[in-house]
């Protein structure tokens, strides 16, 4: 079994799709880093002209027609509307690169494309073996089909999960000079790094979930294109339709909503105030439920794939 696992891992790492996408991802991170570096600014005052213009336009707008009507009604402008101060407007147009916030939000946003890429890479990993007839050769060397499937699932999931973490770690490293030279790096505490590592892990798990779906569907269909087609139809057509049926009651059980929740939860609301000693942080929605649900979907699909693989003839 170890030999089979190692052979499949070597094969996965040698796949052109994996290598090309990996290189493109690295190039994209570097390219984005360069663009952000050029566009950002070290000083808040870089946004001063835009801030001044905004405040001026705001005051002009308030001083025209609608303001008069408000005065006739006995209200002052301050009662219903106010323009931001120049200081506040500066923050709106802030061109400084905020390392901690940007790194976290980028990690959350990039996790979704990586889910789809992991799905496609894993589906082609299995589908190509059926297309070339190599599965027949493999089975004449290891006829126990459970082992064969497991030897595909384990390396694919581990490698893709690790690749996602490495990619995000690389992105975090690329962002550091931007934060230092073109922005602010406040908040880079142990707590931040812990939170960021948690996000990487979630993104890796989401990519592994995508890979499970890809392998499962490609094993069932014995074909890469069919697996990709089924995935596309579900995500682009069925998932949105079902999410709107019956006032969204299916939503909590569907793929996309759970993926988003798994990546973005928990949402926490702060209630009360520290000054009065009654501040409480309430977790409105946790990531546990979507994580468990997605795991059940992945295991269920792989179990169905195994049952079919075991039962069907290889012709």
């Amino acid at each position: 079994m170890t030999g089979l696992l190692l052979a499949e891992a070597r094969r996965f790492l040698s796949r052109r799709s994996f290598r090309v996408i990996g290189v493109l991802a690295v190039v994209a991170v570097i390219g984005a880093g360069v663009l952000v570096f050029v566009e950002s600014s070290k000083s808040l005052s870089a946004s001063l002209p835009q801030a001044k213009q905004m405040v001026t336009e705001c005051h002009q707008a308030i001083g025209s027609g609608p303001t008069a009507r408000i005065r006739n009604g006995g209200l002052t402008v301050r009662d219903v509307a106010s323009c931001p101060t120049i200081r506040q407007a500066e923050i709106l147009f802030d061109k400084r690169f905020h390392y901690t916030d940007t790194t976290k939000s980028t990690t959350q946003n990039v996790a979704f494309p990586l889910f789809f890429l992991a799905f496609a890479i894993a589906a082609s990993f299995v589908g190509a073996e059926w297309a070339t007839g190599m599965m027949t050769t493999t089975l004449t060397w290891e006829p126990r089909r459970g082992r064969v499937l497991l030897a595909k699932v384990i390396p694919a999931l581990l490698i893709l999960g690790a690749a996602v973490i490495v990619l995000f770690a690389f992105m975090a490293v690329v962002f550091i000079p931007i934060g230092v030279f073109r922005g602010i790096t406040t908040g880079m505490t142990a707590s931040f790094w812990g939170h960021l590592a948690g996000l990487w892990l979630r993104a890796a798990l989401i990519a592994m979930f995508g890979a499970s779906l890809g392998i499962g569907l490609a094993t069932l269909a014995r074909n890469t294109v069919a697996a990709l087609g089924i995935g596309f139809v579900f995500v682009a057509i069925l998932d949105p339709i079902f999410s709107h049926l019956w006032r969204g009651r299916f939503g909590p059980w569907l793929l996309m909503q759970n993926l988003q929740r798994a990546m973005r939860m928990p949402i926490e609301h702060v209630v009360g105030h520290a000054a009065f000693g009654n501040q409480v942080t309430m977790t409105v929605q946790s990531a546990t439920r979507p994580a468990i649900l997605l795991s059940i979907y992945a295991v269920g699909l792989l179990a169905a794939a195994y049952a079919t693989f075991r039962a069907r003839d290889v012709t």
Partner: peptide, 26 residues
């Protein structure tokens, strides 16, 4: 065994294909 036309990974060399099979078959 060979069943119908022998199939291998086209992108790998002959040696590498055999090494992979050797690994699978221990």
């Amino acid at each position: 065994s060979i069943v119908e036309t022998p199939t291998f990974f086209g992108g790998f060399s002959g040696r590498r294909n055999l090494e992979l099979l050797a690994q699978i078959g221990e």
